[in-house]
Design a protein around this nucleic acid. Structure first.
Lengths: 203, 203
DNA sequence: TCTTCCATGTAACGCGTTACATGATTTT
DNA sequence: AAAATCATGTAACGCGTTACATGGAAGA
C-alpha cells in the first residue's frame, strides 16, 4: 500500500539480510559481502553504494549520518519495516533451479587433452583451494557452534550455522572428490630414464 | 608465432573443449552447453554464435558448410591445431579461487526472519531441486560407467566421468545437508487443534 | 493446423568487475 | 615515510540474459 512493492534484486535482498541483523555503513556491508556472505554471494562496494540508494528510494532502508567513524561523515543504514517485509517475502518466494558456474569443473571437462601429470597438477591445485576453503568454514563454524542460539530458528546465528554447515559439507565433498580423482591419476613413474630434467612437475 | 596468442575467454575454452571431442554446429554446441556442460557451465546460443566468430578470427576453429542437416546451410565447426594448443594451455594455466554464487544459500542466510514452517518450505524446495539434479547426474554416470575408456586419462569419457562424479558428490552432499537442516526445523506440531486443513506440506 | 526441432543470427538491457578519484587516520 | 584501513562515490567495459527476427521440415 505504501511503496511500489517491486521486489528488489538479489543483491538488494542480500543487503537487506545484513541490515536486518544490525545497522551498518556501506563500507561495513562491502566487508561483510566478502566475509562471510561472500562464501555464497559476493559484491563489491561499487555495486553496494548504488544499490543502497535504490533501496532507500524504494523505502526499504534509511540512513542517518554518523560523524565519528571515518574521516568524513559516514552513512549508517538501517532496514525499515517495509524492508523487513520485502526480505520475508523474498525468502518465502518460489525458488527456481539456478545455473551453476564452476570454472574448476569446466577445466576438468577438458583434462583428457593434457598429459596425466599436468592433469594431476590441476587436481592438486583444486584440492588445495577446497581444503583452504574448508578450513575457513570450519573455523568460523567452531566459533559459533557452542552458542545455544544456533538452535533458535528465529535467531540470526541459527541461519549462520545452517549456511556454514552447508559450505563445510560442500567443501568436504569436493576435497573427497579430489582425493578420489588422484587415485585415478597415478603419479608418473617416469618410465625408464632420460626424464630427470623434465620440469614437468610444478608450474 | 602464427596468431595473436591471446587466451580466449572461459566461454571460448568451453567451446574449444567441446570441439576437441568432435566437430559440431553452433546449434549442437548450444544444446551441449545445456546438457551436459550446463551441469557446471552454461551459455546460450546468443553467446555462442558471436564467440565462434571470434575463435575463427583468432584461428582457433574453422568451419565448412554442410547443406544437409537443416533447412538452410549449417556451419560445421572444428578445432584447429592452434585451438588444441590454446585449450591445453588453458587447462594447465594457474587456477585462482573463484567466487561462489548460490542463491539458495543466500536465502537461507536470512531464513531466521520467517516463521519455522516457511523456513521448512524453503528447505524442502531446495531438497527437491538437489534430488532432481542428483538423479540426473547419476543416470548419466550410469550410462558411461561400464565403458572401460572411462579409465583412460587421454580419452574424453575419462573427463566426463570425473565431472559427473563431482557433480554427483556435490549434489549428494547438498541433499544430506537439507535432511540435516530438516532435523533442526521440526514440523509445526500444530499447537492444539484447528490446523487439519493446513496444506503446509507440498508446494 | 499447430507445435517442435533444426538452424543462425542481432539488439537491448542488466549485473558484475576493474579502474578512477579523493582523503584522513592509524599502523608499520 | 610508506602502507593499510576507513569511507564514499563514479565510469568504462565485458559477460550473460531476454527478446527480436526468420524460416523450412517433421510430427502431433
Amino acid at each position: 500500500m505504501v511503496a511500489a512493492e517491486s521486489t528488489p534484486s538479489n543483491l538488494g535482498c542480500a543487503i537487506l539480510g545484513l541490515l536486518a541483523r544490525r545497522p551498518r555503513t556501506g563500507y561495513d556491508l562491502a566487508r561483510l559481502m566478502r566475509i562471510p556472505v561472500g562464501y555464497f554471494w559476493t559484491a563489491r562496494h561499487s555495486q553496494i553504494y548504488p544499490e543502497l540508494s535504490r533501496l532507500e528510494e524504494a523505502g526499504l532502508v534509511r540512513h542517518d549520518v554518523v560523524p565519528g567513524a571515518g574521516p568524513r561523515p559516514s552513512k549508517r543504514y538501517d532496514i525499515t519495516p517495509a524492508g523487513r517485509a520485502a526480505l520475508r517475502s523474498w525468502v518465502a518466494s518460489e525458488l527456481d533451479p539456478q545455473p551453476v558456474r564452476d570454472l574448476a569443473t569446466l577445466r576438468l571437462w577438458s583434462v583428457w587433452v593434457v598429459a596425466p601429470d599436468v592433469a594431476r597438477g590441476l587436481v592438486l591445485r583444486i584440492l588445495q583451494l577446497r581444503r583452504d576453503a574448508l578450513a575457513t568454514y570450519e573455523t568460523e563454524l567452531a566459533g559459533i557452534a557452542e552458542d545455544p542460539r544456533t538452535h533458535d530458528p528465529s535467531h540470526p546465528l541459527f541461519a549462520s550455522a545452517l549456511t556454514l554447515e552447508g559450505a563445510s559439507r560442500s567443501a568436504r565433498a569436493a576435497v573427497e572428490w579430489c582425493e578420489w580423482m588422484l587415485e585415478r591419476l597415478p603419479a608418473q613413474d617416469t618410465g625408464t630414464a632420460a626424464m630427470s630434467s623434465s620440469g614437468a612437475g610444478a608450474r
